[in-house]
Amino acid sequence: MNLEGNFNTKGSRWSMDCFSALMVIAFLILSPFRAAAQEFEDGSSFTASLLNIEAPVNETFRYQATLTNNSDEARVYQLSAEMPEGWRVVFKARGSQITSLNVEGGRTESLTIEIRPAYGAAPAKYPVSVQARAANKTLTLALEAVVEGSYELELTTPTGRLSGEITEGEKAEILLQVKNMGSLALNDITFSSQTPPNWQATFSPSEIQQLNPGETKDVIATLSVPDKTLAGDYVSKFTAKNTPSTSTATFRMTVKTSMLSGWVGILVILLAIGFVFYLIRKFGRR
């Protein structure tokens, strides 16, 4: 009996020790949540309908959020955000851009959070922490912006100049540049043209198999102008495209008449004047 009593006593003490240890562990685990809960003790909250948005780097991430003030008095919430370097944020409410928002006691206000990634941000998941501060308290909204890769193609010239001169009946070589301004590789880029009637345009190379992000390649467009084209300005459009992207460069070409055509014209005029003079002398005597 004594042995059984000692065993029960030791078992009870072991159970009490385990219970005490579990209570300590539970307290340590739950204490951070209790500390955080003190910040929301009046029931105020900062929420969003979507916490994670996925979009290309050249688009704006828009989050629809609500700010609830469950206190008995009005509060002016100062809005801010912690984002990666180079990113921008804009807060909008009631149709206007804001940096703070006045919320009456017991009321809820809606606002839009617009986040613009930095130019060239790599495809990845980026955390964005948005804060609303009022009355020495901070409501925090944890958002995620998932940047997708982007396709962006640009067709231009090395100098940016999109005009030139050409003599009728001749050919002109125009140096174009194809640039990959996106974050993903561009494949199977082809070229086409829209020219005045009877004009012709060819490209060398006629196709680019692959253009990596940030890479630039030269393309020569050869423009042929037919004979007897009237002098003046003419517009041609050159287009580079693949499946996800397209870019067009509008090129203005000034056509001039050739020297031979000019001399032929002068000769025709002189002959006409000579013929008129001959007629005057011949028939004038009669």
Rank of each mutant, 00 (worst) to 15 (best):
D42G: 01
P127T: 10
R161S: 14
N69A: 02
A21P: 13
L267D: 11
V219R: 15
E54Y: 02
E168Y: 11
S258Y: 04
I189W: 00
E104R: 07
R285T: 09
C18R: 07
T216I: 07
D188H: 07
A37S: 06
A134W: 00
E82T: 12
A48W: 02
G95I: 05
L270A: 04
N102L: 15
E144T: 08
A240L: 10
T257K: 05
A272N: 06
E85T: 11
W263N: 08
F19D: 14
L79C: 02
A124H: 06
L279H: 11
R161Q: 12
E114A: 01
M23Q: 13
S245D: 15
E154N: 04
L143D: 06
A121D: 08
L50D: 15
F191Y: 06
I166D: 06
K217D: 02
V103W: 14
E41G: 00
L175S: 10
L230K: 07
G149I: 02
A36Q: 14
E148K: 05
E168F: 14
L67K: 12
L230I: 13
V130N: 01
M83W: 04
V57K: 11
F91Q: 12
A145I: 06
M1E: 09
R62V: 12
Y63L: 05
E73C: 13
F33P: 14
I25M: 11
T9D: 14
V89Q: 01
G86Q: 03
S31L: 07
A55N: 02
A21Q: 15
D218I: 11
S258K: 02
A26H: 13
M83H: 05
T250M: 02
S71L: 08
S258R: 09
R13A: 14
F91I: 03
R286L: 03
V268L: 12
N136S: 05
G105I: 06
R13E: 08
M83G: 00
Q78G: 10
M1V: 14
E85Q: 08
F61Y: 03
A81W: 10
N242H: 08
L28P: 04
G11H: 09
T243F: 12
I115A: 05
G11R: 15
K217F: 09
A74I: 10
T248F: 00
T140A: 07
N69T: 01
L270T: 05
K10G: 15
M83Y: 02
E168R: 10
D72A: 09
V57R: 11
T202K: 07
V178T: 11
L67S: 01
F61H: 01
L267T: 08
L143I: 11
P127V: 09
T112G: 10
Y234N: 04
T222C: 10
P196V: 05
L260T: 07
P213G: 01
F46Q: 04
A249E: 03
L30P: 13
I273E: 11
S49E: 01
V276L: 15
L153M: 10
E170L: 14
F40S: 15
R94D: 13
T47C: 04
D17I: 12
I115C: 05
L186F: 13
G105F: 07
R34N: 12
R161K: 14
I53A: 06
L175D: 13
V90I: 13
L186P: 00
A55F: 13
T167K: 14
T157A: 06
R286A: 01
A185Y: 06
R286M: 09
S20P: 09
N102T: 13
E215Q: 04
T9A: 12
